[in-house]
Amino acid sequence: MSATVAGTRSTTQHILFVLRGNPVTAIAATLVTLLVVIAILAPWLAPYDPIASDVPSALQPPSAAHWAGTDQLGRDIFSRILLAARLDLFIAVSAVGLSFVVGAVVGGFCGYRGGRLDRWVGRIVDVLMAFPLFVLAMALVAALGNRMENIIIATAVINLPFYTRFARAEVNVRRNSGWVEAARACGESHMMVVLRFLLPNVLPAMAVQISLNLGWAILNAAGLSFIGLGVQAPTPEWGIMVAEGARFITTGKWWLVAFPGLALMLTVLGFNLLGDGLRDILDPRMRT
């Protein structure tokens, strides 16, 4: 935004410092970075076509040709996992992004203005949270139709209360800060005070929430697909893969479930562990 003058630590140096002091964050960051790279490059990385069935080589255990084995239609599970990373991550990022933007803005204004608006939004959020959230998501997808956009919307809606409440609480604490008053004295309107001053200051704390939520949103999307209310077969998606593979687990065909499950677990773990480290990186006050 402005000229950077010597005397501050560079951002890269700072990130490296945080990671060095916190190896768990470093591992989580590696995991998440790897996942993002896979998601982007999946079509080129996948050794086989993830949808083309090859019935003669169905249900083969992991081998040199098929690292994670093949499923009941002979599709390469490894390729399907790579492609599914792309879809699952897209759903999770869009859903969390949507609920973050809406939640932060709504919560931010409620926390800043208070009064009737705040009370009403607060009650609506309470009502939303009174539902079992996964059931609410199921109901939403069932009502809106079984499409990817609707999965994103459903996941966003069930995440919304957390962001709204969080932003409201954090902004509420800061709304009487001297620097908010100072911004008003500098001629800033109420709206810009919330958007340009309060929300950026709340961001480091929210980053933790975002990271934790991403893992949860992936689990949620997979869960919806698992019960048949999500992405439809034959699209590769971790939830569907686990659901379809579950039928074969009794006959000892463990790889159908184990590898997509492992991918799911590592992803959720990665996002959850990243949370705390992110806060340290994003908060300028940690940068001494």
Partner: peptide, 18 residues
């Protein structure tokens, strides 16, 4: 206006220039 607490009256995410 110049505020009482110099720490509290500066946005933590703004540089002195900003």
């Amino acid at each position: 206006i110049v505020f009482q607490d110099p720490t509290d009256s500066l946005n933590p995410r703004f540089t002195a220039f900003d």
